[in-house]
Design a protein around this nucleic acid. Structure first.
Lengths: 160, 160
DNA sequence: TCAAAAGATATATTTTCAATATTGCTTTTA
DNA sequence: TAAAAGCAATATTGAAAATATATCTTTTGA
């Protein structure tokens, strides 16, 4: 059970925009810092832009910034935007369902309940919450920008 | 974000065993009723058997039954058995992580929290809970057994 | 004024991994 | 003793995610 990397990248873009505010962030900054494929970032930035979560600026000296205050961007909404409906089990989607017990099966209802519990947590987290520890996050990022990439991090500090 | 069909089949096997109790259920009953691939059911039954959730009986007139009372089989445990660790985002697994912010990123912690909320719900559901409405469930199953397969169900009743 | 920087868009390709199939085994009992 | 049932390992298929390619449009500084 996992979210797509696309969703992951969306959140990283928003987080980075929050951290760098009021500076503009460029797509190449994201690809550099997070080491992910440029076309993926392009797609995600565009989608976030269309939905109003980011404001994109074309042309030389362009880039993107948050489209509204960080505290008003809810992680749950980003997940809904990039994932679409969470079909944790096939019977959530009558189109795809093959289970003969659909409609009367309590299992389905319980998994729905669990999925709601999952989203409830994310509906109470904003971009402000995940960029609140600005200094250490920016330190990590700066380190990358100075040393220039091939640096790998573990949970308990830096390695090479 | 979805669970594997393997996990789904595991739960269907346990549910069916609970419904048919004290009768033995055969692998071919599951493939017939749920229209899923036999080798998948074989695998799942075997795994559930080894873990003690099912008791399997080999040889002619064999089959399987619950390995312990339905109320003592927790859905959360089945999910853990068949899914393994839920790597909802790659940073849950330091082996696979590529994010430079690992260890200090609040997003990761919030998604962990959401995942726990998801599992918490399933840790409070047992096989007894999802087979408690025995009569309607068995009616559906019987209908299949009588009419012999090509019947498709929608959420609001039967179609063909 | 035009070339470079930046995002926009569509389509194609690759890769991964879940899902399924195949084959042959062992156990049990009518 | 043959048929019914589960056990086990390996191979194949297929769908979807991830990535790449190519070509656009917009903007602005030299």
């Amino acid at each position: 059970m996992k979210l797509t990397s696309y969703t992951n990248y969306a959140m990283r873009c928003l987080q980075l925009a929050a951290l760098k505010e009021p500076e503009l962030v460029r797509i190449d900054d994201v690809t550099f810092i997070h080491g992910v494929s440029r076309p993926q970032v392009v797609k995600v930035v565009h989608k976030l832009g269309k939905a109003g979560f980011l404001e994109t600026v074309r042309g030389r000296n362009g880039g993107f910034r948050l489209g509204r205050p960080a505290k008003d961007i809810i992680i749950g909404d980003i997940v809904r935007l990039t994932e679409g409906p969470l079909d944790v089990v096939e019977c959530f989607n009558p189109e795809k369902n093959t289970c003969p017990l659909i409609g009367i099966c309590k299992l389905s209802k319980k998994i729905q309940e669990a999925t709601h519990a999952f989203m409830d947590v994310l509906d109470n987290v904003t971009i402000a919450d995940i960029s609140e520890n600005r200094i250490p996050l920016l330190n990590r990022i700066e380190l990358l920008e100075i040393t220039g990439k091939p640096v790998i991090f573990t949970q308990s500090g830096q390695t090479s």
